[in-house]
Design a binder for these strands. Structure first.
Lengths: 216, 216
DNA sequence: TATGATTCGGAGGGTCGTCTCCGTTTACCC
DNA sequence: GGGTAAACGGAGACGACCCTCCGAATCATA
């Protein structure tokens, strides 16, 4: 039912269309935007929305899973760079762009975490990014006091600029430049204060404290 | 009516309490959180909420005005620093901390802009920050390709980490360190791409594209 | 403490959003 | 084309939330 494989072409088309319109709707009007409006935007009846997604939560969950899949698609290019430093640059740049173009993401992540805090696809990235950071530091290119979690948070920060609307997307790369310059190992970098956060704490943070779903 | 000056102490106390709880509620549950819940949290009846604030929009507007007043309070310390570079540091740090501690702000700003796009208190800061940037650059401390608008956006980015909840507040200063190091004039900084945004465009951006209020 | 004005509390009418139900339509397969 | 299973549309029941209204409670003042 919530699977996108159906023998009927109209059903598959509507499913995909609903997902697309939902992403846009959630970005524009918030994650609690009326699903009747989703139906209207997708050009279908309200009943069709609920045949494809049992309720708002199921829809949110499916958007989340699709996002995790997109993340996996980004990995090869990032990790395949010539130097570890170049991988770090690509990591911040590509993921920042991806988050910036997915303004529905923060709310979706929080809602999913509220529905089921134990659901954590993507945890496998921890090792990979840790290794990447260590290699870039041993190359002498990445400052020593930075951690993989810091990179993740920086990506979040840069990506948060996407929430202001697509017309501002060309501009966040200026801030990206500043961040990357700040990440380079150099004589005279300012020591970073406070202990770094653990990876698990980062997950909790990026999935934390959203508007609660209506208790049902 | 919406003024906080009343001859009765209970009325003044409830008004302040409602504002405080509203800030917290909006941060936790979104700007459309039920006002009945606001009443419950503040320990008053629903009627009391509506005697103090005609509706949700009036409440949002009052929170916005209080925030602008807080901004003015921050100015003297920031501008009174020994060097312009130190002022820039303080600007990013103090404003970042203030935004991070005000997770209700982004939604409030957007809602206010939707209610009345011509309402723009705080526009007077433009000149001041422009001058500050110019002085820090002529000191040779701040990189030349950065603008006042870039600083504003960086503050937004850093402050966006506050939306994750108060327990993460100690951590964003690590990212602040990286940003400040990236802002320093140095041999070998990467040139910033794309044109900088105009100040007016920055205002529009930071007030843009929120969830729409229910048309009434 | 008594008085009068102000504020408070919370039940309830009206509105909007969610989700169901079922008669109608569409797509697939022969 | 004809037949069948699947999907569609949208009216409407239900519930949540907004905001009002007015009798009860509280505060300032003397």
């Amino acid at each position: 039912m919530s699977s996108s494989t159906s023998s009927r072409r109209d059903a598959r088309r509507n499913h995909a269309r609903l997902l697309d319109e939902a992403r846009q709707l959630f970005a524009e009007r918030g994650i609690d935007a009326p699903l009747d409006e989703l139906a209207a935007r997708a050009g279908v009846g309200a009943g069709t929305v609920y045949r494809h997604f049992a309720n708002r939560d199921a829809l949110v969950r499916e958007i989340y899973d699709a996002a995790v899949a997109e993340l996996h698609d980004l990995a090869p290019e990032i990790l395949g760079a010539q130097t570890a430093w170049r991988s770090v640059e690509l990591y911040v740049e590509r993921l920042g762009a991806w988050v910036a173009e997915s303004p529905f993401l923060p709310a979706v992540m929080r809602r999913v975490a509220e529905l089921d805090p134990s659901y954590r696809p993507g945890a496998e990235f921890e090792e990979v990014v840790n290794g990447l950071v260590a290699r870039a530091q041993s190359e002498g290119a990445l400052r020593d006091d930075v951690t993989a979690v810091d990179l993740g948070i920086l990506v979040d920060m840069l990506g948060s600029l996407g929430q202001y609307g697509r017309e501002y997307l060309p501009f966040w790369r200026r801030q990206l430049t500043i961040v990357l310059d700040g990440l380079r190992a150099r004589p005279g970098t300012t020591p970073m204060p406070a202990p770094a956060q653990a990876f698990a704490a980062f997950h909790d943070m990026s999935h934390a404290k959203g508007p609660k779903p209506a208790p049902r």
